[in-house]
Nucleic acid binder design. Structure first.
Length: 491
RNA sequence: CGGGGUGUAGCGUAGUCCGGUUAUCGCGACAGCUUUGGGAGCUGUAGGCCGCAGGUUCGAAUCCUGCCACCCCGACCA
């Protein structure tokens, strides 16, 4: 079998790069830092969107769409927000092109300069809160629970397909509430939606928790996150949910009259996940032969490969394959018969493995005689012979089992790569020898956090939600600490 | 944005140091025949602004300058 991927062991970053390209998920475009998401990659994104959108609706949210362009003045109203994003904003300054007088091509028409420059949204808090101002007068107008599916742009210096691109697709929820408690509940609720989505659908176990001040979203009072472990032992922030307090309400002067007749600023949240989740999905599960997709995220769940020699056999095998396909579809299983007569079965096997199709059914003349099919699962590479009786039902169960198995494998890996360190030496040893997550005591200061980051490249991924109260001493300063925080090297 | 690396056919590459007819090889593509239960075999064919733009030279993939893109390491970040 021809090897098309660099092995993970040889070069993990190269393996990831190869896989994204070879599996047809995405490729680089003519524009620096911007990728083309190809049909197969976009199909995965659509599956993510469909599930998440359902969960957002289920929790009372509606979709809307706000402008791509944001007046520069809006952006600067929230001080820490502008500070956080200013360095990576693309700016629109003109609105017309013209032919160069010397015929050298097309140039910007300097006479068409915008009075106020516009920035391409890196996130939409400002334009949305400017809008909400007009929508909110009374507590009766609250809460506002809105999500938008959009593209955003952050002018990143260093990009990687899906993990960090200058333009990316995401959803951003923006909610407005009458009380801090309600907004905090919303923040927690949506973090929980993300955690559930990651574990149930992406089959990726996540740690949830609060970010430290230095890792907080620009403009947030508190940022919560889900952190997932990749196979190389590095952590990936897979989703964030922010309690914005009254920061944006104050910046955009959004007040409401309460039941008691008092005027107060509105409380806010925002939360988002992006196409980065596709990168997480790839790096969490896949192997040296290609993608391993959990069935719930697979654009094709079952691929049926017919095998035949003669025309007569082809007809019989196709008939049988079509029948199986129809039975699977009747159970809402996404199945396809690969009828390309330009490729050999072996070629198709390798191709579908590369693309991570969870289950392959091979059917040939031998199977027709025996009333069987060969069933191969992508996650374990196991092959077995199944009787045709109740095949669709058995495949349905198999898909459930695969989904479960992929999650358990990732969970075992994550747990085996989560360790505790009580001294800085042990911390550094674990980080270099094992990678993964390290739970350690921290004195709560930004200085200690920065020192550890400078010396080891590890950052505090979060202060875990479920952290037990535990007396200890900071591994750096020796000062008292009441609970362990989660460290890792991260993407 | 700093340091390092790479750019030759759809993909992977030889050639670059030391300039010299027609740019190497493999995969892939296309055609035909034989094949089809793990990326099939044989024969033949097509496919190149050697990243882009200048320059040096009788002559540039090769030397020089500038630019662009990608990869790795840093700083920054979902």
């Amino acid at each position: 079998m021809g090897k098309v991927l660099t092995s993970r062991k040889e070069n993990y970053a190269q393996w990831y790069q190869d896989l994204v390209l070879k599996a047809g998920l995405a490729e680089n475009s003519a524009v620096r830092g911007c990728m083309v998401i190809k049909p197969y990659g976009y199909a995965i994104w659509e599956k993510m969107q469909a599930v998440l959108d359902g969960m957002f609706k289920e929790t009372g949210h509606s979709n809307a769409c706000f402008p791509l362009l944001i007046p520069k003045s809006f952006f600067s109203k929230e001080a820490s927000h502008v500070e956080g994003f200013a360095k990576e904003c693309a700016v629109v300054t003109h609105y017309r092109l013209k032919n160069a007088p010397d015929g050298s091509g097309i140039i910007v028409d300097e006479t068409a300069k915008l009075e106020e420059e516009l920035i391409i949204r890196p996130t939409s808090e400002t334009i949305i809160w400017n809008t909400y101002k007009g929508w909110i007068q009374s507590y009766r107008d609250l809460p506002i629970l809105i999500n938008q599916w959009a593209n955003v742009m952050r002018w990143e210096m260093r990009t990687r397909l899906f993990l960090r691109t200058a333009e990316f697709l995401w959803q951003e929820g923006h909610t407005a509430h009458a009380t801090a408690e309600e907004a905090m509940e919303e923040t927690a609720r949506m973090l929980n939606v993300y955690a559930t989505f990651a574990e149930k659908y992406l089959a990726i176990p996540v740690y949830t928790g609060a970010k430290t001040a230095s890792e907080r979203f620009a403009g947030a009072v508190e940022t919560y996150c889900i952190e997932a472990l990749m196979q190389d032992g590095k952590s990936l922030q897979a989703g964030t949910s922010h309690f914005l307090g009254q920061n944006f309400a104050k910046a955009f002067d959004v007040k409401f009259t309460g039941k008691d007749g008092r005027l107060d600023y509105v409380w806010a949240t925002s939360w988002g996940v992006s196409t980065r989740l596709i990168g997480a999905l790839v790096m969490a599960h896949s192997d040296d032969d290609g993608l391993i997709l959990p069935p719930l995220m697979a654009p094709v769940q079952v691929i049926i490969v017919p095998i035949y020699k003669t025309d007569e056999q082809q007809k019989q095998v196709y008939d049988a394959a079509d029948k199986i396909c129809a039975e699977l579809k009747a159970k809402k299983i996404i199945a396809q018969v690969d009828k390309r007569d330009t490729q050999t079965p072996g070629w198709k096997f390798a191709e579908h493995e590369l693309k991570g199709v969870p289950v392959r059914i091979a059917i040939g003349p031998r199977d027709l005689e025996n009333q069987t099919v060969e069933v191969a699962r992508r996650d374990t590479k196991e092959k077995s012979i199944y009787q045709l009786t109740d095949l669709a039902l058995k495949i349905e169960h198999l898909l459930d089992h695969i989904q479960d198995n992929i999650y358990k494998k990732a969970l075992n890996f994550r747990d085996s790569k989560t360790a505790s360190a009580d001294t800085y030496d042990e911390f550094k040893r674990l980080l270099d020898d094992e990678g993964g997550f390290i739970l350690a005591h921290w004195d709560g200061t930004a200085e200690t956090e920065a020192k550890i980051k400078d010396e080891t490249k590890a950052t505090i991924r979060c202060i875990p939600d479920n952290a037990r109260h535990e007396e200890g001493k900071c591994i750096i300063s020796g000062k008292p600490s009441h609970r362990r925080v989660l460290f890792a090297r991260a993407y």
